[in-house]
């Protein structure tokens, strides 16, 4: 028996919108501590890891660990039928091949349930060890989205370089080149507007902008984004979900061979 009631249902809608274009199908792994998902895009270049902890739910019941394979496009279609203020409850029964999403309006005068077919998914789970990163940049998520969008109009790849001077985003394309430098800036009115650069060693890596732009669909989930880089590891682009968990995107770099 599985029953999860999320008062801030819009959060789940936003989570789905942030990952559904990157990943078609995924197994949702439910346990008593919360639910998680790990899935790669079809080309195995990017990976999404989602965690929503049970503490963030008004009611959370998961009698035993269970994995449910869902088509994220279909799940998104169903969640789009929930109002932004609706309370969303996810329900499942052991051995069932469906999951139910229940939407309640805040005033309880409209209650809808949508039953979605589950699917069997052969998922490739990767072991991602904790790592020390050479550089970690925390910046406003809207600023990061703007930079990725702007650079994608010039080139296909972005070089992200972190030095003690700041973080530089560079691209080049047929029409020319672009460089955007952000300096550390902690003298802001609101902490979420700060750009904070933690650097142990300088790092410079190249990534496909198409994926970066896809990651920025998570911008509505968090005011800030954290970008963690080490030369021999995929970059981690993390959007924290307040009090509940995170959506992390991992992207393999482009490297010279």
């Amino acid at each position: 028996m599985l029953e999860l009631r999320l008062v801030q249902g819009s959060l789940l809608k936003k989570v789905l919108e942030s990952i559904k274009d990157l990943v078609n199908d995924a197994n949702f792994d439910f346990s008593s501590s919360g639910f998680s998902l790990q899935s790669m895009d079809s080309s195995h270049v990017a990976l999404v890891a989602l965690l929503l902890k049970s503490e963030g739910f008004e009611h959370y019941r998961c009698d035993r660990n269970t994995s449910m394979g869902m088509n994220l496009g279909n799940m998104s279609k169903m969640l789009k039928c929930a109002g932004n203020d609706d309370i969303i409850t996810i329900k499942g029964d052991d051995g069932s091949d469906t999951v139910t999403f229940m939407f309640e309006s805040p005033t309880q005068d409209k209650i809808a349930d949508f039953e979605m077919k589950l699917m069997d998914i052969d998922s490739e789970h990767l072991g991602i060890p904790e790592a020390e990163y050479h550089a970690i940049v925390k910046m406003p998520s809207a600023e990061f989205a703007r930079i990725c969008k702007d650079l994608a109009s010039i080139g296909d790849t972005v070089v992200i370089s972190v030095t003690k001077e700041g973080v530089k985003f560079s691209t080049r394309g047929d029409i020319g080149t672009a460089n955007i430098v952000l300096r550390q800036n902690t003298t802001v009115d609101k902490p979420e507007d700060a750009t904070v650069i933690e650097m142990n060693e300088p790092v410079s890596m190249t990534f496909a902008l198409r994926y970066m732009n896809s990651f920025t669909k998570a911008t509505p989930l968090s005011n800030t984004v954290t970008i963690s880089m080490s030369p021999d590891l995929p970059v981690v682009v993390e959007y924290k979900i307040a009090e509940m968990g995170y959506v992390r995107f991992y992207l393999a770099p482009k490297m010279e061979e």
């Binding site: 195995h44 990767l126 991992y250 010279e256 061979e257």
Partner: peptide, 14 residues
């Protein structure tokens, strides 16, 4: 030449 790496170049499946 610059090549796109894969997740499998960095992490093991389990």
């Amino acid at each position: 030449r610059v090549f796109q790496k894969s997740m499998f170049d960095f992490y093991q499946e389990y």
